[in-house]
């Protein structure tokens, strides 16, 4: 996914001299190609995220197309107010990239882990929130963000989970993408980011009639499509490497409870910080987001809802 990111920013910047890449002193090695091929469009703003995001707003007002890169724990979390007031308020075409979302920085602790970012950003008017699952969705999301000329927060999570698509999908802003077909009336898994892959594996092995959807667009999201999915499903399981408060699980639940009530299991971080240090898989286990724990939760939920 990181190679796809690098390739895409180089492609966008070469095609449009107004594209500027701003980084808050992050992205070691990631920007080698960009710095080589588009050096005049690269700005290291230093360890000063608030100023970086404010500057991006000023550059956008002056006609540029800034892409702001930071770790998700800092962009958007540290700069929510700059995003709200300086960028979203005026619908400025700034692409905000939050890398390492979820538990990617499993060894570094709470400061670098980011499981609140969707909740914080999706409440900001005019701001779109994208959460690609693999390199192909990333390319589609970035191209749509560039073309749409609206402020977008693009969340990049664990980048080496493997592909969920065979190639760049025909994506449309707001539309969920089917990554595994299933039977009408069975289970619908709706996942975003790193957990799309997990949902596909669980469904493929244990619930062959279940349909699996990837949601690369958290906001806007196609209400009609979500309603149809919910109306056609026995139960819905939503998975995300993000808090269950305010993330994709909330989005689906909010729509369903108004338009197509269905029982929904929200799999995500249970309103808590990580306790321990360890590898990525270890952290997923700590939060009950590893494959086995999710299988168990789905099993228990299906048992409960069968009655």
């Amino acid at each position: 996914m990181r190679d796809a990111f690098s390739d895409t920013i180089v492609r966008l910047a070469k095609a449009d001299p107004n594209v500027l890449l701003l980084t808050g002193d992050h992205g070691y090695a990631l920007f080698d190609d960009f710095r080589k091929e588009c050096s005049s469009q690269y700005i290291n703003a230093g360890i000063a995220e608030q100023n970086m995001v404010g500057m991006a707003a000023g550059m956008a007002r002056a006609g540029f197309r800034p892409i702001v890169y930071g770790l998700s724990a800092f962009v958007p979390m540290r700069v929510v107010e700059q995003i709200k007031l300086d960028i979203a308020h005026d619908q400025l075409p700034v692409m905000l990239i939050g890398d390492g979302a979820g538990f990617v920085y499993s060894y570094l602790g709470t400061s670098h882990q980011s499981t609140e970012d969707i909740a914080c950003t999706r409440a900001i008017p005019n701001l779109s929130v994208y959460s690609p699952a693999d390199r192909f969705e990333l390319i589609a999301c970035m191209d749509l963000a560039y073309k749409s000329k609206v402020p977008v927060y693009l969340r990049m999570g664990k980048s080496d989970r493997g592909d969920v698509h065979m190639g760049v999908p025909q994506a449309k802003v707001g539309r969920l993408l089917e990554v595994k077909p299933g039977q009408c009336g069975d289970i619908a898994f709706i996942a975003t980011g790193s957990l799309v892959h997990t949902a596909m594996n669980i469904a493929a092995d244990l619930y062959s009639d279940a349909v699996v959807w990837s949601a690369p667009f958290i906001k806007p999201i196609d209400h009609q499509q979500v309603t149809t999915i919910c109306a056609q499903s026995r139960v819905v399981v939503v998975l995300e490497e993000h808090s269950v408060l305010g993330g994709l699980g909330s989005v689906i639940t909010e729509i369903a409870c108004e338009l197509a009530p269905v029982q929904i299991l929200r799999v995500g971080v249970q309103d808590r910080f990580s306790e321990h240090c360890g590898g990525y898989e270890y952290l997923l286990k700590e939060h009950g987001l590893d494959r086995l724990a999710i299988e168990q939760r789905v099993h228990d939920f299906l048992k409960k809802t069968a009655h």
Partner: peptide, 13 residues
């Protein structure tokens, strides 16, 4: 404290 940074961005542009 917002306008200063926005202005710096404009000047950089």
């Amino acid at each position: 404290g917002h306008g200063f940074s926005v202005g710096v961005g404009m000047a950089m542009g």
